[in-house]
Each structure stands twice: as structure tokens, then as C-alpha cells.
Design a protein around this nucleic acid. Sequence first.
DNA 1: ACTCAAATTTGATCTGAGTCAATCGGCTGC
DNA 2: GCAGCCGATTGACTCAGATCAAATTTGAGT
Lengths: 233, 233
Amino acid sequence: MVTIEPNGHFCDDCAVRGAAVCSSLDAVELRQFEHLGRRVHFESGATVFSEEDITTSFYNVLEGVMRLYKLLPDGRRQIVGFALPGDFLGMNLSGRHNFSADAIGVVTVCQFAKTPFSRFIEDRPQLLRRINELAIRELSQARDHMVLLGRRSADEKVATFLLGWRERLAALKGLSDTIALPMSRQDIADYLGLTIETVSRTFTKLERLGVIEIIHGGISLLDPARVEAMAAA
Amino acid sequence: MVTIEPNGHFCDDCAVRGAAVCSSLDAVELRQFEHLGRRVHFESGATVFSEEDITTSFYNVLEGVMRLYKLLPDGRRQIVGFALPGDFLGMNLSGRHNFSADAIGVVTVCQFAKTPFSRFIEDRPQLLRRINELAIRELSQARDHMVLLGRRSADEKVATFLLGWRERLAALKGLSDTIALPMSRQDIADYLGLTIETVSRTFTKLERLGVIEIIHGGISLLDPARVEAMAAA
DNA sequence: ACTCAAATTTGATCTGAGTCAATCGGCTGC
DNA sequence: GCAGCCGATTGACTCAGATCAAATTTGAGT
């Protein structure tokens, strides 16, 4: 289920070194930093951490996609975000995670034990500044998502999601009209505050309008401008 | 509309000194810090800053309540939060505000020009750490609010709002079953992703159930346990 | 106190998205 | 190849909350 790679100078060939939290470190610091983290692999569907668990580690996503979610006591689920390579997870004030995180497909993370990581930050304000930047960026995304959840129609939600996801993939692999959707319809529904049926119907509707094509494992954007028009309302 | 107080050693008698961003500063630093900020008053309904405005200042709320919101092109509004004394506003990465802020009733803020403030932070990591803490706390609140917007019923939204608001007021003035609601029904609706009619009906329903009493400028919690039960679902 | 405008409440009706219920289609394992 | 399963789609119907439309209350200004 979970496999841990032997330690080594893995930062050297780390795909996210430039984008992630580590981008704030110079060569010497990176060498020290390297000893704090270890690469851990999670298989598809594995839970990386759960809400209310005591935080023992921070995570830097290296490969794969994770769903970040909160559950209500009766089982209703809200996905609060998807984590992609370069995202940093685990910061909190309470000492406990405030959401759960599952691997969607195979995931590789760089895992840091909380205490040594916190100590490392102490006298490296540029790392703290980088973490702060990431937090502020997430906060801005969270506010955008509140608007979507509170004030957008189903069609607008789906269109906005497709464009936003495309944008995030573009930052990793370059812009493309073929959009991989590794998450299930249920995941999309729980992210958008909809049901699986509504998501499915909206996809079909977009396909019938000739705006997208539903392909295996994703969609193809046939008419980006129309989708943008639908998203903007 | 906006009045600026003459400078002075106002940190000494600042009501939020212990709770706000300044709590991370020692006496000497506080004296220097004092020269960076100035007290500014806003009258009821005044806009403190607007989304997409270039950020020229940061704000520390001293007195009053603000609504923080985003607008869609067609005028739909989502309130992303209410700011109370001790809240720190204005952090962003883009150099532009990512939401608008209006005064609800009279508001006093401590306003800091962006550049000198940013310079002041540079060599004071404990202030940066404090700002980071506030950002992480907000992020956690934002995620909770996503769950509310995406997955809760109207009754649950209203009940959760009343308890959450009571909690925030409790942190300022001590716990009370009399809850002041300075914001309009429209503000509450835009915060909860509902219409004004639904909010009004839900309030009346709660009153008829004998769970709350609608009073001038707020409500009185007659049966907190029942409200908690409604909120939890 | 009186007027007017704005905010809130209440009622009647409508509808977008949810719910319930079959299929359908694509993999997995035999 | 085919049986069984799980995710996705589609259809029929329902309902929570929106919309439209009046009252009614509140409050600011005279």
C-alpha cells in the first residue's frame, strides 16, 4: 500500500524543485533539507492522512493527484481541492489536519516529519515566506471556490471546473485542449457541490452542444470560447 | 466619509493589541510599528477597498464589522467572510485585492502602507509567522465554509451561521445567548449562498419552533442545544 | 408625529437540481 | 469469450429553495 524509497540525493532529480516549497532554498540549504524528507509512494485510493488525525508530517506532492475533502457526520462529502505536484500539504494551527487526503491514482510525495521541519523553518525566513505565499494563493483559490459553490448554476460550475483544471494542468505540462480527468464523476460532483447525475448530464449536454468530447479518462475541449462563455455567465 | 486620526502613541490603548498581528511584537518593536500605521474611520456602508484594486495598504480591523465579498459580472454576490476586530486584511500575491471590503456600521482600522509594512516584516520573522498563522486560520475557516456552501441545507446553513457568529462574538466580548447581527438579511443570504427570502423564512421558522427570538438588531438563542442539533445534521 | 424609502416578512408559484430507478459500458478475473 | 462488477449514463418524478409579488415593519428626514 505504501512504499518508502531509500534515502539519497533525490532533490537533484526532483521534478517539482523549482515550483514547490523548496524553490526558496539555495543549493547548500537544499542539501540539508534533503535529509529531512523522504519519498513515499501511495497506491491508488490510499488515504495519506485523515481529518482530525494529529499532524505528524507535512507533504510535498511530487507526482499524481490527491483529493482533499471534509466529511459531515452523515457522510456527505465536500472536496475542498485537488492537490497536484508542487502542492504543499499539512499546515495547520490546531496540531490536527483539518481535511482528509486520498491518492487518486498512484501518488508520490516528499514527506517531512513535523518537528525537524518546523525547526528547519525557524531560522530560514525565506522558506517561511514561501510557505506563506502558498497559503495566500490557496486562500485566494478557496474564495473563488466559495463563489462557485454559493452562487453558480450547475452548468457554470462544470464549465468553470473544466477551465480551472485545464489551467492547473497547463502549469505542469503545458496548455492543451485535451484535459485528463483522473478523478471520478463522484469526485467532481463533491468538488462542485452537485450530484453525480447532474455532473454526468451536464457533460453529456456539453458534448451534444459540440463544445466538448468525452474521451476515455478525460475530455477534449472542442470549443474553449463557448465553455468560457458558459463559465462567465 | 473617511476620517483619519492624527498620529500618536495609539498602540498603547489599542483594543486589539493582544489578538491582532501586532501580538507578535515586543515593546520596542511596537513603538516602531506604531509609526507605520494610522487609524482611519469609515462610515457605515463605505467601501474600504475593492476587488482588483491595486493593493496599496494592509488593514488591521480595530472596531466594527466588515463584509468581504466577490461579485460575478452579472451582479451575483458571494460574501466570503466577515471581518471583526483583530482581523488582518490585504495580503495577496498578485498585487491586487482579491475581494472587496465594505464597512457594516462604523469601522475603525489601522491602515499600513504596503511598502514600509513589507519592509518592516523583512527582518522580523516572528511577525511573518504571525501573519502566516492568521492566513492558515482563515484557510481552515474557508474550507469549513466550502462544506457549508456545497453540502448543507438551508436550515443547516442558518443554524451553523448563528452558532459560528456567536462563537466569533464570544471571542471578542464573551459568550452570550444574545447575538448581535449587524449585517442585513441580504448579507446573511449572500454569505450562506441563499436568497433573502429563504433566510427570512428560516429565521421565522426557528422563532416559531421556540428555538430563537428575533430581536432588534439580532437574535436571542433560546435553545442553543436545538440549534446545534440543526447545524450538525 | 408624518412621509417616504428601504428592509423584512409572508404568500403563491415555479424550476433547477436532487432522488429514485433502470440500463449501459468497460474492465477484471476466470 | 463471458460473467460479474463498478462507474457512468439516462429517464421519470419530486422537492427544496428560487422567483415573483404583495404586504408589513422599520427608520431616517422633515
